[in-house]
Amino acid sequence: MPEAKETVLEIDLGNLAHNYHFLRSKIDKDVKFLSVVKAHAYGSDSVVIAKKLQELGTDYFAVAYVEEGIRLRENGIIKPILVLHPQFTHFEEIIEHCLEPNLYSEKILRSFISTAEKLNQKNYPVHIKFNTGLNRLGFDQPEIPKIRELIKNTSTIKIASIFSHLAASDDWQERDFTVGQIDLFRKMTWELVADLNYEPILHICNTSGVINYPKAAFSMVRSGIGLYGFGNDKTVDPQLKPVVTLKTIISQIRKLDKGATVGYNRVYKVEGPSRIATLPIGHADGINRIYGKQKAGVIVNGKYAPIVGNVCMDIIMIDVTGIECEEGDEVIVFGGPQHAVKFAEAGGTISYELITGVQRRVTRKVIPE
């Protein structure tokens, strides 16, 4: 594989396919699979990722916002797309682009019904979200009679799925709470569908749910972070393959004597003769200031090089003393020999925040399957 000549985020579609097949192997063949591609497919490229997943046979997609779904439609994605957090002002766009809204409160349910009626819709697919303990979006159990009444009194919409979101499916210490969420979801669903003459899709399992609670798969599962190579479990992570690798190059190497300082505010002082390399990547690219001051480091020719001084907007400095390297050499920020989880933990955060934070000015490079 050719070395990077600039800062690039490599997207490995072979690894994506591996993760998809691994996760599907954990569920029954008749259980549908929803692929979450919000936030630019967790910081990569939503169109590239969605096209590959559509080719692989995913049943559904999910995005956070309407504009994300429109982008997929405009780039050839024909599978159903669930919009997880739609806003009132975008309802007509949702219908125009055949997107499917998550309706999570009485106000938003009434509003979407009104829009659907105005646009002469019939049986437009919508998704109903229950709050079972995460306490973000969703209907609470006492609201079910009102939902049932509103749905029975209109022919403009039809429930495509009913779903909820597990709060701690990756934490075995919270097993009782998770089982309680699953049981409550089952009870709420029975209460809502009792009067329906059809069966909506049911889903509550996220990636960790698929792995730890496969019996709660119902008729569909959702996976986001798992598709990109992270299982939230040290026993599962080795079976997944990270889809993205962030690479950059050495711009310049400077020799410094003992006592010299590096970067803004002179926060790093070299303790002896040192070689300091500058890299063309900084907090404007998603490598935030939390990773500076030797908290995290990068890989240069197979060796670990700590980030020294404060992270700058477009530049970080690393200590390459004792490492054979020269200007123009490739540097791996995360991915490959340095797992993103390890890099993120060094800064006191999680892989989700790290990978979704890679900014759009970083060139995306697709590695085909």
Rank of each mutant, 00 (worst) to 15 (best):
A344D: 05
V331G: 08
Y352G: 01
L354V: 14
E330H: 03
G348F: 09
F343Q: 03
D329C: 11
T349W: 06
D319Y: 11
V308D: 02
L354Y: 05
E330S: 10
I355F: 02
K342P: 00
G348R: 02
I318C: 06
C325I: 04
C312E: 14
V320F: 13
V311S: 09
I318W: 02
M317W: 08
G336H: 07
E326A: 14
G335C: 08
N310G: 07
T321K: 06
G309I: 06
V333H: 00
Q338W: 02
I316E: 07
V341T: 13
M313S: 14
I316A: 03
I332H: 00
E330V: 11
V311F: 11
E324S: 15
E324Y: 12
E345V: 04
C325R: 03
V320T: 11
M313F: 04
E324K: 15
H339T: 08
E327I: 10
F343E: 00
E353G: 09
K342V: 14
L354F: 06
C312T: 05
L354D: 06
A340Y: 01
V333N: 02
D314S: 13
V341C: 01
V308Q: 02
E327A: 15
V320R: 02
V320N: 05
G336S: 14
A344I: 00
I323K: 04
D314N: 15
I318V: 15
A344P: 06
G348A: 10
Q338V: 03
N310T: 11
H339F: 09
H339G: 04
F343V: 08
P337K: 12
G347C: 10
D329Y: 05
F334C: 12
V331M: 07
V308R: 01
A344Q: 02
T349R: 04
G335R: 03
D329Q: 03
I355P: 04
D319E: 13
C325A: 15
T321W: 09
V341D: 09
I323Y: 05
G322Y: 01
E324L: 14
E353L: 13
D314T: 13
G335Q: 06
A340C: 12
I332Y: 01
V308G: 05
M317R: 08
I350M: 13
H339I: 12
T349M: 12
A346Y: 02
A346K: 07
E324I: 15
I332C: 04
G336W: 01
V320A: 09
I316G: 04
V320P: 10
I316S: 03
G336L: 09
I318F: 00
D319P: 11
T349G: 10
D314P: 00
V341G: 02
I332V: 15
V311M: 11
I315C: 06
S351R: 02
I350Q: 14
G322K: 06
G348N: 09
C325M: 06
D319C: 10
C325W: 07
I316M: 15
E326I: 03
A344N: 01
E324G: 12
L354K: 02
P337M: 09
F343K: 02
Y352D: 13
I355Q: 00
E353M: 10
D329L: 07
V341R: 01
I355C: 05
C312A: 15
I316T: 06
G347L: 09
V341N: 06
I318A: 05
I323Q: 07
V331P: 09
E345Q: 15
G347K: 05
V311G: 10
I323D: 09
